[in-house]
């Protein structure tokens, strides 16, 4: 389970997260919704361990271990996975070689046997079907020349391969048309399981029609101001964030 307590974090000296508290038990899918600038992406980067995000107060633990002390690769080995809002293109590095290196690095860190080329390819072919990722895309350079939708499918494909215990989806729906959104959501739903926690960060309620969350949190000004069930997302869409916050205060 993911446990965030009173988290304060700054970027370039500016405080973005201001006392965020949140718990995601194993097996649950929690959505975080919030307006622009509320700290959604900062939260995902702080959880994944990106440099430049300074935690000034509070704690984050996952499976009982202190996440904040760890390098990004150590967090990945522990089972943390961030599906990027803007996946990075890396010309000259093949998608498959990248992913095999990632998978084997994690296996090695966990003391498991590394996969050989044949075992890896078998797994990759199987998982690529989940998000209908074209085989030729697997061989191309990482996200290089991929369309927006292909990049997001590639993120979910990576998630399927690495089988994280905490998946953070940072605006995975942004830039997707409805068909791509359905495919990506199906992929995510197929990966739901009793041992896997998911944090779905989004701006739009639409995604939550397809990935139905157990809990919806409202993030504003760097804090969770309100939490509720999936219907809260609909209310946010219809009534707006300020209205929901005002009611929560009352």
């Amino acid at each position: 389970m993911l446990k965030i307590e009173n988290l304060h974090a700054s970027v370039d000296g500016k405080e973005i997260l201001r006392g965020l508290t949140l718990e995601v038990p194993a097996g649950e899918v929690h959505a975080i919704m919030g307006p622009n600038g509320s700290g959604k992406s900062t939260l995902s980067y702080v959880l994944a361990g990106r440099e430049g995000y300074e935690v000034t107060e509070g704690s984050v633990s996952f499976g009982g271990e202190d996440l904040l002390d760890m390098d990004p690769e150590e967090r990945a080995a522990l089972g943390v996975f961030l599906a990027f809002q803007y996946p990075v293109a890396i010309p000259g590095v093949s998608n498959l070689q990248f992913l095999r290196t990632a998978l084997n690095s994690i296996r090695k860190a966990k003391g498991e046997e590394e996969l050989n080329a044949a075992q890896f390819m078998k797994l990759a072919r199987e998982k690529a079907k989940l998000v209908e990722l074209k085989p030729e895309l697997m061989k191309r350079a990482v996200n290089h020349g991929f369309s927006g939708g292909e990049k997001k499918r590639n993120e979910i494909f990576q998630m399927a391969m690495l089988e994280p215990s905490l998946a953070i989806l940072d605006e995975t729906d942004s830039g997707l048309d409805i068909d791509a959104l359905k495919i990506v959501s199906q992929g995510v739903n197929a990966l739901r399981g009793p041992e896997r926690s998911m944090l779905v960060i989004t701006h739009y309620q639409r995604l939550l029609d397809h990935i139905v969350p157990d809990v919806v949190h409202v993030l504003m000004d760097g804090r969770i101001v309100h939490s509720g069930d999936k219907d809260l997302a609909l209310r946010l869409e219809n009534e707006g964030y300020e209205q929901v916050r005002a009611e929560a205060r009352a």
């Binding site: 990106r50 690769e73 996946p87 890396i90 290196t101 990632a102 690095s105 350079a141």
Partner: peptide
């Protein structure tokens, strides 16, 4: 790019090597 590779579990040194090589 470096963060992307590391967030997938690839150790920092190897991630650097991969990027320079590419």
């Amino acid at each position: 790019s470096l963060f992307y590779l590391r967030s997938r579990g690839i150790p920092a040194d190897l991630a650097r090597g991969i990027l320079i090589h590419a």
